[in-house]
Amino acid sequence: MSELTLTVMRLGFLAVLWLFVIVAVQVIRSDLFGTRVTQRAARRAEDQRSQPRQPARQPSGRRGSGGGRGRNVPTKLVVTEGSLTGTTVALQGQTITLGRAHDSTIVLDDDYASSRHARIYPDRDGQWIVEDLGSTNGTYLERTRLTTPTPIQPGAPIRIGKTVIELRK
């Protein structure tokens, strides 16, 4: 066999081998499109971004509201009854939504809760407010059914369906 043929075959073989590798990589490349990469951390960052002013404003609100209530500011929300008993959510100025909808902050697995049942949010002074969002069975703060957004005192039970939550310091 002539030297030339063998050289051509040698280089040709390497070329074919590399062609296979390149084709394989192309297959992977086409595989990358059409997939969704979900970063849960990113979603949290978005939550924070959508509420950029409230955390900044909250400390000044606390100061402005005088020393009397300064000690009374709750730092966490605790579920005390229902299937989520024991769950806590830190209160850092964000709005907390409650309901059966998947995008709620606290997703309630409860037939007696509406999909968007209630929300808890800080007002301009940093006072936490609970508001019923037109739910079917209502939201109860202590024993009274809510009709308007109402300030929450730490330790007061809020009942939604079978779930009871409280704000604590």
Partner: peptide, 15 residues
């Protein structure tokens, strides 16, 4: 900010 404490596990999913 709204980290529910019962939520653990990896934070990336490729679907």
């Amino acid at each position: 900010s709204s980290n529910i404490t019962t939520n653990t596990g990896s934070n990336t999913t490729v679907s």
